[in-house]
Design a protein around this nucleic acid. Structure first.
Lengths: 343, 343
DNA sequence: TTGTAGGCGTTATCAG
DNA sequence: CTGATAACGCCTACAA
């Protein structure tokens, strides 16, 4: 008899076969019990359960994946692992997936289409059971193609299809509320720091800004709009430019909190005080927004919740059900960075 | 002839076997070429390469894992996915691993020993090729046991062993520098917001504080030390307590930036100004520390770098080499939250 | 309801 | 240097 090949994993690893032997049934029966593929007699079920407990058996996801079954892993395409916003979402995903026995496989695409495609291929090669794509750059059609094979949950857009579920935040409404808040405080010269026009959500926020102006009969002044890129430094530079342009304004609405932080620093450097000289409004309500001086007024976007909802939708998709998750509506958080305009 | 079972993956997946057939060699040869396990004749190499290119073959990591080979994945045990500090480290890990073809598998243990052990087991069941443990709670011995089977890189402690590499930041030196900075500015009543005493790094920072006081002949006053837990709210509460205790102080050194942010908010709420009334010093130099008003003086700890170094050490371990990575020394970043004591 | 016999895609062993 | 052949651990038609 040939010597059996010795496994590379020195840790005493318990296999399904061992459970089968221990409990005196065939491996298939054990497998079926585990997967609920077929009904197993109460008696055998008991002895199998006992054997599993005794041996401390844990199914090997790798083997499962190969055998064509599930890998119990979900590919999560994010744009930046270390973004404060996505960080919270990732935690939500993890928290929701974990009790269900699924593990997230995080990859970041850095807002880059090519890299996003590579990520998806990589995840597919690792046989994930589904995808969660956070605000990707891919076209709707590309996503539909992916969803044709594997369940897919995507955030940041409206799109429907079989095996596909979209979770979208009301950025337009949020942008409207933010702007309206400033207007209600008496501001009429409200600067807007925009996000990358490639982001649909950035554009929606901008639209919300426009709508609110219009609703208040304030004429739109394009000179008050400066481009940004959703991170701190771009907010800082935007305000630098705004100030250099000599435009008059009494309030700033930044399309996200990170840019608002940058804006605050620029104002600080120019000896302008928030909110005494300029009211400042953000968007997202990052964990940090409460902990800056002054605490930032913003629109609350539930990042953690978003993660949980996306993951739970994925779980439902996997179970063949129709996801029911709906995003909470945007909520205005008025803190100390905005104040009534002094006349 | 029985109908061949149809794979679950509808995407036309190219296998190694197909490459073998296409190039007219045996699968083993293809495998050997791919893994560099043995020398392959130049001629066959060419035709295999051609076949791979033509078919667009990508090895299946899952099958590889099962076959006892590597899964090309590294288990990364972090404490909190959404912590600003770890976020940067994770990005570093990802950036370093990716070009080498490895994928990180992130799990967070939430500073909880039991959960950390579960994470490790889970990762092991997924056949990761190695572990990177960021500031875990496990004992040195437990880690050594893990390292006996799989290469392990751990941060936040000093420990040596086969297949084991530790990457430690000089928290003591950093704590010393931070305190010394305040002393040099003329402060003598310096409050300290401590971290969880379970964290070795928190204790080291505290020691640095003590050493600096001693070096300056300033007697240590335990009343100036308040407990914190490394997140914002704990810093806020700590300062609330400190203020309530009526202790006199002119500066605060928080054991990490997040607590410093909380401290700043508490001061703000008590109408105390930074740095005019109180100088505030943090530790870590989070991305955000620059973008708060006033920008926070702190000790720079290279989180992203840490991630890269840990990952590159892992790669070296995997290659059977001895890792050479060393952590950069702490660097004082003096910004606007600290100033010379006015007499 | 249960067992048997492949097969998933790759690597490792062994004999040429 | 190369090719069969047997695992890796599990799942699933098929047959009983």
């Amino acid at each position: 008899m040939k010597p059996k090949r010795i496994g590379k994993n020195p840790s005493n690893i318990v296999t399904l076969d061992m459970v089968a032997i221990e409990s005196g049934v065939s491996p298939s029966t054990v497998s079926r019990l585990l997967n609920g593929t077929a009904t197993v007699s109460e008696e055998k079920k008991k002895s199998i359960d006992a054997a599993i407990a005794k041996l401390g058996f844990v199914p090997n996801p790798v083997a499962r994946g190969l055998a064509g079954g599930r890998t119990l892993s979900i590919g999560v395409v994010t744009q930046a692992l270390d973004s404060p916003f996505y960080g919270a979402a990732l935690r939500g995903i993890e928290d929701e997936l974990d009790p269900a026995g699924y593990s997230p496989l995080f990859v970041s695409a850095h807002w880059n289409l090519a890299s996003e495609v590579r990520c998806i291929d990589m995840l597919r090669s690792r046989r994930v059971d589904g995808f969660i794509v956070l605000n990707g750059r891919m076209t709707d059609n590309a996503l539909k193609n992916i969803a044709a094979n594997l369940p897919l949950v995507v955030t940041g857009r409206q799109i429907k299809g079989p095996g596909l579920f979209a979770l979208n935040f009301d950025n337009l409404g949020g942008g409207f509320q933010a702007t309206q808040h400033l207007i209600q405080l008496g501001h009429r010269r409200i600067a807007f720091i925009a996000g990358d026009p490639e982001h649909p959500d950035a554009n929606e926020r901008f639209k919300g800004y426009l709508n609110a102006l219009k609703a208040a009969n304030i004429s739109f002044d394009p000179n008050l709009v400066v481009a940004g890129e959703y991170h701190e430094i771009s907010g800082l530079l935007a305000v630098d430019r705004l100030l250099a342009s000599q435009q008059q304004f009494t309030a700033i609405f930044a399309a996200n909190d990170q840019m608002a932080f940058g804006a605050a620093l620029s104002l600080h450097r120019h000896a302008l005080r928030v909110p005494d000289d300029v009211s400042l409004m953000g968007f997202d309500d990052l964990a940090n927004s409460l902990y800056c001086a002054p605490p930032l007024s913003t629109i609350h976007q539930p990042a953690y919740e978003l993660g949980r909802l996306a993951a739970s939708a994925m779980l439902q998709l996997l179970a063949g059900k129709k996801p029911t998750a709906v995003m909470p509506a945007p909520v205005l958080i008025a803190r100390d960075s905005t104040r009534r305009l002094r006349v």
